[in-house]
C-alpha cells in the first residue's frame, strides 16, 4: 500500500495497526503509515481478488505469447 500523505510504499505487515485505546481497534481495518502515521485504507477484498484475477489473465496472456 502507498501512504496518501507522504507517499511511502509499505507492506501491510509493516504498517502500524489500528490505534490502541480506540474501542474499534479490534474491527478497524485501517493501517497507519510506518513513516508518518497517516491512516491508510486497506483495499477491499473484492478489489484485491479482482486485481489478482486480472493479473492472472494478464500473466496467461503473456505466457501464451
Amino acid at each position: 500500500m502507498r501512504c496518501d500523505f507522504c507517499g511511502t510504499v509499505f507492506t501491510e505487515a509493516e504498517a502500524r495497526p489500528a490505534c490502541t485505546g480506540c474501542p474499534l481497534a479490534g474491527v478497524c481495518k485501517k493501517r497507519k503509515c510506518p513513516r508518518c502515521g497517516y491512516e491508510v485504507l486497506p483495499e477491499p477484498k473484492w478489489v484485491k481478488a479482482l486485481k489478482a484475477w486480472g493479473g492472472s489473465i494478464f500473466a496467461g496472456y503473456k505466457a501464451n505469447r
Binding site: V9, F10, E14, P34, R35
Partner: peptide, 17 residues
C-alpha cells in the same frame, strides 16, 4: 529494499524510514 524484495520474492521488510 524494494528492488531486493522484487528480485528475491521472499518476504522482506521494505522500509522507507
Amino acid at each position: 529494499s524494494a528492488l531486493f524484495h522484487r528480485l528475491t520474492g521472499t518476504y522482506v521488510t521494505v522500509s522507507n524510514y
